[in-house]
Amino acid sequence: MVGSDRRRLRLFINGRFRQQPMTGVQRYATQIVLALDALAARGALEVECQLVLPPGAPPLPLRAIAQAHHGRLRGHAWEQVDFAKVARGGVALSLAASGPVFQHRQVAVIHDAAIYRFPENYSRSYVLLHRVVDRLLARRATIATVSDFSRGELAHWLSVPADEIVVAPNSAEHLDAAPDEGVFAKLGLAEDQPFFLTIGSLTRNKNLRLAIEAMRHQPAASRLVIVGQIDGGVFAAEIPHAPEQVILAGRLSDGEVTALMRRARALVFPSLYEGFGIPPLEAFGNDCPVLASAIAPVREVCGDAADFFDPHDASALAARMHRALDDQDGAWRAERLARGRARLAHFSWERSAATLATACVGAARRT
Rank of each mutant, 00 (worst) to 15 (best):
A283I: 04
A242W: 04
A292C: 15
M1A: 07
L95D: 11
L291Q: 03
I278P: 08
N207D: 03
L291P: 12
T367H: 11
L128K: 09
E282I: 01
G303F: 12
E173D: 15
F149G: 02
S98H: 10
L344R: 02
F235C: 12
A44T: 01
R339D: 06
V183E: 07
L60Y: 04
V183F: 03
P219E: 01
E274T: 01
P194T: 09
A354F: 00
V81T: 11
R27Y: 00
H241S: 14
K85I: 15
R333A: 05
V109A: 12
L154G: 05
L136D: 00
A236V: 09
G255L: 04
A354T: 01
H217S: 14
M321W: 05
A345T: 14
V107M: 10
S271R: 07
L175N: 07
L34T: 06
D5L: 11
T367N: 08
D163W: 05
F102E: 12
R251N: 10
G15F: 04
K206G: 00
H156T: 12
P279Y: 14
D176L: 09
T23S: 13
G43Y: 09
G330H: 08
V225G: 13
D313C: 10
C288A: 05
I226N: 10
L11A: 04
T367I: 01
H76C: 01
S352Q: 07
E79Q: 10
T145K: 04
A294F: 06
F284W: 11
W349N: 10
P243L: 05
Q50A: 15
L208R: 10
N121P: 00
V225N: 13
A220W: 00
I143E: 05
R88L: 12
L344V: 06
A236W: 02
R320Q: 15
F309T: 11
T258Q: 10
L128P: 00
V25C: 04
I226M: 12
V52M: 01
V133E: 06
A354I: 00
P59I: 09
